[in-house]
Design a protein around this nucleic acid. Structure first.
Lengths: 400, 400
DNA sequence: ACGTCGGGTTGAAACGGTTCAGACCGTATC
DNA sequence: GATACGGTCTGAACCGTTTCAACCCGACGT
């Protein structure tokens, strides 16, 4: 049979020419037996030879009207049973509820939302779905949202502006109550536009550039500074920074903090801080970055590496270990995010910890803040957790 | 000057009545005075004289009718521009597009879906949002979905049946095209009911018990067997299984495989396989589990631990290391899932690998399968990755 | 007995799109 | 010149809810 990937319903040409049959004196408007599962049902012409008689009559989903009819009440009453049960007589309610069960009624959320204008869901766009940092944040958001029985739609932009835009638009079209987004780039006009059109917006992991927009962030400059101050204190005078593109604000800020720490220590960042841009913020990206560094003669290369996140650091540690480079003796490593496994690695990884869960719950909180209250811009402070990857004498600096 | 909406609207909000006003003058689009965002009373006090844009009254989100009016065409034409651009004259199209841009029009997804009956989104319910295994699967799903520009709503049930039910219902109400769900329990009647009502369903990480439902799974019995066969081959005669509750299918199956491996080797699972149920499938759960084991006198305890997933194994390794128990000499450890960091741990972790990404893409594929085709039930085979945590000679997987 | 009150119920309007039969119109055909 | 035809565009019906003015009716106060 013709392979038709049924998912895509984009109206490719396929125009139906159905010259109307001449004046068909039909009686009452015959109800189109349209399948609910619009795009799954195809024209019957390509009916699979071996198709089992799956002539499963597609029953129309029962509507509130059907329920009303079955229960012998008005639609308004059914609606009341659904939404304000106390306004309806117990006897009536029971009858309606029986009908609902009988007909297997499931309320149509679209109609509900269209009329009521309200939808209890929130959209989130994060930079990377497979980064534990963001999934932890997402979990925080979900926990908070659940309190008000909101639902969460999550999507990852993979640091792609277009994708970010697409998801935001989709959320908006579907009428989410709010969006929480960690923008991929500096350009957040499209995010502001969403807000301008009336959807609550919270910026995640990035301070808001405008006062009207709420945001939740961690001070990345401070984080970068913490990491590099520590490395300097350990005696390192040249540090490599495995960083993402500067279009990502977190990357830029962490670098800025790193540079500031250098300057404070009387070092010139221009020479003491060697920045390497990794191809992706993943272990593989980290591997690529560190290889670049290893290509230099040992004498010429920095003695410490500051990785913009723990996934990158993971790749770095992996590569160094494979290549037999001693950590921290030959090269010290500091990561960022302090993901769960950081402490348990072959060489326990020093890392800048961010309050992920709280970041999430706070972001969700801001979505719920009372109308009229001034937008809040929360900034958390990061914290350095020192482990073996950056020092031979691990200080007791953090909890487990 | 009414401020922009700052927070989420609570589900009950008084709406403006349009019907009330009598003869509507046909002049220019009259901006309604009452904000659609509900009664914001006078929030004038907090008006920071910021954006000049907000000096204007909060306008109702532009509707397709507004666009039509502005462009001087019929609503049907606007709809066509949106959905079937090739059916409309370029000149007209441009005019409409200009109006759309002008009015900042965003199509209302609910109305669209209500009428068209189609929504391009898919709901996913996984057991645990913070388990890398599931986020990797989710990523696979997203990748596949993106090809058809579908969106993904993800939620975590935390192994709670009620939560699973709630999310499924929400997805259904919102009219998703399909759901992908990894059920928390054996009871999946509610899932089947969803399908019965006309929404495509794919079971994730669990073979379908009924032929009409598609599923994507990995053979967990085989996985459990692989792990324990390996441990037996390493000379272990008693193995502890740190498992989750048997209400979870995966846990049960992995145990079954483990027991089968025992039997095959002539060992009695009743004595040779010590199952410990962890309080949660997390590192902390693993810690609790292994502590229970460590409480036994060294002679009385199993010499190997098979963990139902890598997060649990992580907690086990962490605890053993803290307590100075040598891995694998005193206790060997095998995990499950082969998460990214498994190879990079202090003691690289042997683990049963599942094809996560493919699991996801395949699940999404099944959602898109053509209508008549028989539901597929895909089962992948797991694979054991042997590392130091279970053997001192990692390269040697065969006989001792 | 009569007016008032108020909880329960009704029924239709409205939400904002998509759909499609038909109006309209310019062109090709006979 | 009349007819047929095909492409554009129009406008009203329709999707399934929520909402609310109006209605009903029994209880209550006077």
């Amino acid at each position: 049979m013709p392979e038709r990937p049924t998912g895509l319903r984009r109206p490719t040409v396929a125009r139906r020419r159905r010259r109307a049959q001449p004046a068909r004196p039909t009686g009452p408007p015959v109800p189109l037996n349209r399948s609910i599962m619009g795009n799954m049902a195809d024209s019957t012409k390509a009916s699979n030879a071996a198709s089992p008689a799956s002539a499963r009559t597609v029953r129309r989903r029962a509507s509130i009207t059907d329920v009303a009819k079955a229960a012998g009440v008005a639609v308004g009453t059914v609606s009341n049973v659904l939404n304000k049960p106390d306004r309806v007589l117990p006897a009536t309610r029971e009858r309606v509820e029986a009908a609902i069960a009988e007909l297997n009624f499931v309320r149509n959320g679209s109609a509900r939302q269209l009329r009521a204008g309200t939808l209890t869901s929130v959209g989130v766009v994060v930079l990377d779905l497979s980064n534990p940092f963001f999934t932890d944040v997402a979990r925080g958001i979900q926990d908070r949202l659940e309190r008000d029985s909101f639902t969460l739609m999550v999507a990852g932009s993979d640091e792609d502006l277009d994708r970010e835009r697409r998801y935001l638009r989709l959320y908006e079209e579907h009428g989410v109550q709010g969006v929480i987004v960690s923008p991929a780039t500096d350009d957040i006009d499209h995010v502001l536009a969403v807000r301008e059109r009336g959807t609550a917006v919270v910026l995640l992991d990035r301070p808001s550039p405008v006062p009207e927009v709420a945001s939740v962030a961690v001070d990345d400059v401070a984080g970068g500074r913490l990491a590099v101050e520590h490395l300097i204190a350990q005696g390192h005078e040249r540090v490599a920074l495995l960083n993402g593109p500067h279009t990502i604000r977190q990357c830029r800020d962490r670098r800025e903090g790193a540079a500031a720490a250098m300057t404070d220590a009387g070092l010139d960042p221009e020479v003491a801080l060697e920045e390497i841009t990794v191809p992706s913020l993943t272990p593989d990206g980290g591997e690529a970055g560190i290889r670049e560094l290893l290509a230099l003669p040992a004498a010429a290369r920095p003695s410490a590496v500051f990785c913009v996140n723990d996934l990158v650091a993971l790749g770095v540690l992996r590569t160094l270990r494979r290549d037999g480079v001693a950590v921290p003796e030959e090269i010290a490593v500091v990561g960022y995010d302090d993901v769960t496994f950081a402490a348990e690695l072959a060489t326990p990884l020093s890392s800048v910890r961010q309050p992920t869960l709280e970041l999430g719950t706070r972001a969700a909180d801001l979505l719920f803040r009372p109308e009229g209250s001034a937008p809040e811009q929360v900034v958390f402070s990061p914290e350095l957790v020192i482990r073996e990857s950056s020092t031979t004498s691990p200080l007791e600096a953090g909890s487990p």
